[in-house]
C-alpha cells in the first residue's frame, strides 16, 4: 500500500509538472472554463428571468464552468497516458516492480488536483463578477463535485487510452465527456427541458453532480440536494474505475 502511494504520488507529481511545462495543454484547460463562465453568462443574461432558482445567470453558470475545467483535466490524463504508451514511456513503468495500479492512480490524483485548481480560478472569477462565495461547506461541495468529476473523466479517458494505445483516441475521450456535460443541466435546469433531452438529463449522472454543486452555489443546498451528487460520483468512480483497471490488465496481453 505504501509503495502504491509513493509511486502514485510520484506519477501525480510528474503529471502536474508536465502540465506546467506544456502551455498548450495548460492554457486551454484554464481558459475554456473562464470563457464558458463569461460568454455563457453574458449571452444568456436574460435567462435569469426564467425559473432557474436565481436571477443571476453567472451564479447559475459557475458549477458548469468548474465541471468543464475538471473535464479538461480528466481528458488530459488520458491523452498523456496515450502519449506515454505510444512513446514507450509506459514500458519503463511496467517493466519495473512498481504496482501497476499506480499507472492509473497517479494521473487521476493529478486530474483531481488540477480540478481543484481550475475550480479555485472559476470561483475567484465568479467572486470578481459579483457572485458571493457559497460559504465554507458550500465551497467544499463545489470542490468535491469538481474533483470527483475530474477523477471520473480521468478514469474514462485512461480506459480509452489503455485500449486504443494511441493519441488519436483523444477526440473520443473528449466527445463522451463533453456530450455528457452538454446533455445534463449545464445550460438549463431539468424543469425547462422537454422530450428526449429531458429524459437524457434525468438519467445523466452529470446532472446530479451539477445540481448538487449548483444548489450549494446558489445558497440553498441541503443534504437532499448533495447526496445524489455524491452518489453519482461514487457510481461513476466504480464503473469507470473498473473500465480503467480492466484496460490496465490488458497491457502486455494483446
Amino acid at each position: 500500500m505504501g509503495r502504491t502511494a509513493a509511486v502514485s504520488g510520484m506519477l501525480a507529481w510528474r503529471a502536474i509538472i508536465l502540465v506546467r511545462r506544456m502551455p498548450s495543454v495548460f492554457i486551454p484547460s484554464l481558459v475554456m472554463p473562464l470563457f464558458i463562465l463569461v460568454a455563457t453568462a453574458g449571452a444568456f443574461h436574460g435567462v435569469g428571468a426564467l425559473p432557474i432558482g436565481t436571477s443571476d445567470y453567472l451564479a447559475f453558470t459557475i458549477p458548469f464552468a468548474t465541471i468543464m475545467g475538471a473535464g479538461f483535466a480528466g481528458v488530459n490524463a488520458g491523452t498523456t497516458l496515450a502519449r506515454d504508451i505510444e512513446g514507450g514511456f509506459v514500458d519503463r513503468l511496467i517493466s519495473s516492480p512498481a504496482p501497476r495500479v499506480s499507472l492509473v492512480a497517479g494521473p487521476f490524483t493529478a486530474a483531481g488536483m488540477r480540478s481543484l485548481f481550475t475550480t479555485t480560478v472559476v470561483l475567484i472569477a465568479g467572486t470578481i463578477g459579483g457572485v458571493a462565495p457559497p460559504g465554507v461547506l458550500g465551497t467544499i461541495v463545489v470542490y468535491v463535485m469538481a474533483a470527483g468529476f475530474g477523477v471520473a473523466t480521468a478514469l474514462w479517458s485512461m480506459g480509452v487510452a489503455l485500449r486504443a494505445r494511441t493519441v488519436q483516441s483523444a477526440p473520443l475521450m473528449q466527445l463522451v465527456v463533453f456530450v455528457s456535460i452538454f446533455t445534463s443541466v449545464a445550460y438549463a435546469p431539468r424543469e425547462l427541458q422537454h422530450g428526449w433531452l429531458r429524459t437524457i438529463a434525468d438519467w445523466n449522472p452529470v446532472t446530479r453532480i451539477l445540481e448538487a454543486s449548483r444548489a450549494t452555489e446558489l445558497g440553498g443546498a441541503s443534504w437532499s440536494d448533495v447526496w445524489p451528487g455524491l452518489g453519482a460520483i461514487a457510481l461513476l468512480l466504480a464503473v469507470l474505475g473498473a473500465w480503467a483497471l480492466t484496460g490496465l490488465r490488458r497491457l502486455g496481453r494483446d
Binding site: R14, D84, G87, F89, R92, S96
Partner: peptide, 25 residues
Amino acid sequence: VALQDAAIDPFMTGRELLHLQGVLH
C-alpha cells in the same frame, strides 16, 4: 531494461527521470 528508441519523457530533466526511476524501484 533500455528499450529501442530510448523511451524517455522529453519534458522531464535527466535528474527527475532518475529520481522517478528510483521511486519505481
